[in-house]
Amino acid sequence: MKWFGLIATVFTGILLLSAVPDFAAFGDPDSPANGGLGDHPSVSQYYITDTYTDTKVPNIVTAVLADYRGYDTMFETVVIFAAGIAIFAILRSFSGPVAPSHPTAIDTSVEGDHQRIIIGTTCRVIIPVIQLFALYVVAHGHHSPGGGFQGGVILGASFILVALAKDLSAALGRFSEKRYLALGSVGILIYAGFGLLCVALERNFLDYEILHRIMPATDPIMARSHSMLGVEVGVAFTVTAIMFAIYANLSSKGRLEQGF
């Protein structure tokens, strides 16, 4: 296996390197990917020049992510959701006596106590800030880096932090299994629901433009912008829920008790 691995690796490396001299130089603005080819203007040029007219979102990445390639993003969310369900399916165990391989006692030594006070206090200060900040990231994705995914991960991380600072059951007390599974589904439902709403209004899937008919006081372009916010919220829901779900299952071997 070792030799095979080495040979495969070297072979792949040589193959990949063999094409490198053929590449456009690094950072070349006129490379095919950046500048297009002859009479085929590159897609990315279109994104840069026209995104604002099309969607009024200054963050081009967000616009492309949630609108032009929103279909991709929806499935990206589905991937996350699938991962959450997968981990549930693989690890979650309901029955059996609690016979953990490690004593699951909360660390109760004097030092532990001491540590918990310090860490606990820090976390108490920091967790609300993180959560607030996560919401800001989700909401402000149109204008600065960020968006549903990043915000969702941060929000999920804040719950993980709760679990780390206290223990898993404390975090589960705030965000129970039933809740996070539901929230994960709801996130995708929101996303796909936006798409389906467009279909219901006789446009193509995820063609947000038409939603200005049902959104108050918007024009087609702003409808795109607002809908993007909507789907980002959906993404954030799913990501939050699933990130925490993954942690919860991994850290407790699927028992969702004390955990790590």
Binding site: E111, I118, I119, T122, I126
Partner: peptide, 20 residues
């Protein structure tokens, strides 16, 4: 502010862990 808050805390946690 956050660096001031978190960095010492993690230092503390690590120190403690190292001792443990």
């Amino acid at each position: 502010a956050f660096i001031m808050l978190t960095s010492p805390t993690s230092t503390h946690a690590l120190m403690d862990a190292g001792y443990e």
